[in-house]
Design a protein around this nucleic acid. Structure first.
Lengths: 189, 189
DNA sequence: TAGAATATGGAGGCCATCTCCATTTGTCAA
DNA sequence: TTGACAAATGGAGATGGCCTCCATATTCTA
């Protein structure tokens, strides 16, 4: 859709610096506590430059998010190649909880963005959703998963897990949600 | 905990006006688009007064939220008195989806607040969580629900449903999540 | 290496948030 | 009632973060 214009050397350098700093701040979880102007300074870049590359906080977040999403999609593909669909799904979901657990700050940032409904992210996560949907569809074809439930429900549950990240017993509860989803997904009766 | 100090007559009047206006704006879904100062004018109140009664947007939201929470807790209690625990739980969860569906704006506002992790709300929803936890515990005692899954998982799923409120096929997916949770909750094997 | 194109940075404008206090309103004792 | 004190009001203006603008600097191309 968007044609990548060849970026000038210095521009590319600044952009990279911005992204690198963003990733750090993201993982530290302070993405929303930091003044945007200060963020520019932190990356060794002028305010104007920051705004030209990323007009909004969300734009910046999305740029970082893209890499994450790509990695997750890869993982889905790998699992799907290596395991029966139902097992791949289970492994993927369990893995997601691990991942979110290990990247606390990032998880928080993302769920905040989701809720703020920046649209850009809804867009960005489409790829992941598609991958999960395919996985569920494959499991349905195998007959290991019921066919009367939309794959979107799985995304919704996942969303809930991410969004509730600050609950005290988060890890245990997240695992339980996955258990419920997985068991509920088996053909009933 | 907090002792209610006898509020002066005019203060009470203003406070009520504020709350009434807040409820309207809430339900219309424009709670975050409205300048806080304008909100004061809308309620026929000075800025200073608004801030004295509700120091932050969140404080105001919480005040409105309290009523909602109380109503939901009542509903849980009623259902529990009228039905076997497992059925009460199912009915309650289905009802929640209806309720969120019918109060779009409010749902959005609340989930935004949740994600912003205002703390006050986590606090406020404790009562509802307790009610649900009790309900699940009762169902476990009845032997109709498995005992190896934390009730918090149900809250998490519910949270996900509310937070994902802007998804295209929301209603259907929300119903599916409830189906998964309910089926997953039955003692497996 | 000169000129055109592209990118930079940070001073300053803008605007929502919140504070402060002179004034108004309510309460209560006499 | 009324006077006097406490409680509450409202809105002008300080504060401070977000973003724009453009004079200057850097890179590219021929």
């Amino acid at each position: 859709m968007t044609v990548d214009k060849p970026l000038r050397a210095d521009a590319q350098r600044k952009r990279d610096a911005l992204l690198a700093t963003a990733r750090e701040v993201f993982d530290a979880g302070g993405f929303f506590d930091l003044r945007f102007d200060d963020f520019a300074r932190l990356a060794g870049v002028g305010t104007g430059t920051l705004y030209r590359h990323f007009p909004t906080r969300e734009a910046l977040a999305e740029a970082v998010y893209h890499g994450e999403i790509a990695a997750m999609c890869d993982r889905v593909r790998q699992l799907r190649a290596a395991l029966p669909a139902a097992e791949a799904l289970a492994t993927f979901l369990r893995g997601m909880v691990d991942h979110i657990d290990a990247h606390e700050g990032l998880a928080r940032t993302l769920s905040t963005l989701m809720a703020t409904r920046s649209g850009a992210l809804t867009e960005g996560s489409r790829a992941l959703e598609q991958a999960v949907t395919d996985l569920v569809a494959a499991a349905v074809r195998d007959g290991t998963v019921r066919d009367d439930v939309n794959a979107g429900a799985v995304m919704m549950a996942l969303h809930g897990i991410g969004a509730a990240h600050d609950r005290p017993g988060w890890r245990a509860e997240a695992d339980d949600v996955i258990t419920l989803v997985l068991d509920g997904l088996r053909r009933p009766l």
